[in-house]
């Protein structure tokens, strides 16, 4: 299952990559693959911008605009300000999503 094409903000800096393969390990959608001694982005449309690869790259080779892909969270952040987050219910009405 793929979401919208060519919108994911994932970027990999080949110069900083040492080829440890950690990003391949943490990615839940097989977005990255090894090519020789470097990781490459093999499936950009598969990226859900969870940020696991960026958080676990000890060499700062990966950047991604990490965030929640949730319409309710983004609408709330537009209406009430702040970053989109899973706290849409604020614990008030019990309809929290996760």
């Amino acid at each position: 299952m793929k979401y919208l094409s060519k919108v994911a903000s994932l970027k990999l800096n080949a110069q900083k990559c040492v080829g440890c393969g950690m990003c391949l390990e943490v990615c839940p959608h097989n977005v990255l693959r090894m090519e020789g001694r470097k990781a490459v982005i093999a499936d950009l449309d598969g990226c859900m911008e969870c940020g696991a690869c960026m958080t676990n790259c000890a060499f700062g080779a990966i950047t991604v605009n990490k965030g929640v892909g949730c319409a309710a969270a983004i609408i709330n952040s537009i209406l009430y300000g702040g970053e989109p987050s899973c706290d849409c219910s604020g614990g008030k009405n019990g309809d929290s999503c996760c």
Binding site: Y3, V7, A8, G46, E49, C50, N65, G69, C70, A73
Partner: peptide
Amino acid sequence: ALQFTGSTTFTGMSGVNKELKTSI
């Protein structure tokens, strides 16, 4: 249906943002 993006395992923020810009 757009609300379901929050429950999926594959939708990213850039994509949902793009959808909202046209659909809202």
